[in-house]
Amino acid sequence: MAAKFPDFLVTKLDWVANLGRANSLWPMPFATACCGIELMATASSRYDIARFGAEAMRFSPRQCDLMIVAGRVVMKMVPVMQRIWQQMPEPKWCISMGACASSGGVFDTYAVVQGIDRFIPVDVYVPGCPPRPEQLLRAVIDLQEKVRRTGTIDAREFADRKTYEGPANLARQIAPEDTMMVPGDFTTATRLRD
């Protein structure tokens, strides 16, 4: 639709849309572990995420535009996380909250994914174990800034991000004879090569 309007008008439309979106983010709380407790604290009266317009947490991804992944994600959860991400309507953003969601944290084991950015795109990372509510609020403010600066009314800024943006493969940490090379899909990804 953007192509039909002259540039200056599109810019104004973007600005209006960003104003609305940035000040009314609807988080989807994907809380899988202890960070979720801190996420709840952020929403409660003392820290009050409502001051930043992001208090409307909805447990249906179809009504949300900000996914907050709070906690470690295990490989059994990866397809679920991706499904929920894909069910959210564009434009949407993702905050990776805590050491575990961002990097696996101390759980460098066979089941725990070493950072959710290997599987879904992440906009803001929040360090800490768990991050304090102030840090999460800061992440929301940073994300609002990002929306205001880069957002567009028809979410066209996402369309050309067609390459993988996550970290490099961890396969080098595993001895080659231990590596499993079956190309992954959801039914065979944990199978060993014959």
Binding site: V74, M75, V78, P79, Q82, W85, Q86, D108, T109, Y110, A111, V112, V113, Q114, R118, F119, I120, P121, F158, A159, D160, R161, K162, T163, Y164, E165, G166, N169, L170, A171, Q173, I174, D178, T179, M180, M181, V182, P183, G184, D185, F186, A189, T190, L192
Partner: peptide, 16 residues
């Protein structure tokens, strides 16, 4: 301990 690579052997969702 770190498995045989199963934990990262999943398709990736790109931003686009």
């Amino acid at each position: 301990l770190r498995g045989r690579g199963e934990r990262h052997n999943f398709p990736t969702v790109l931003r686009s």
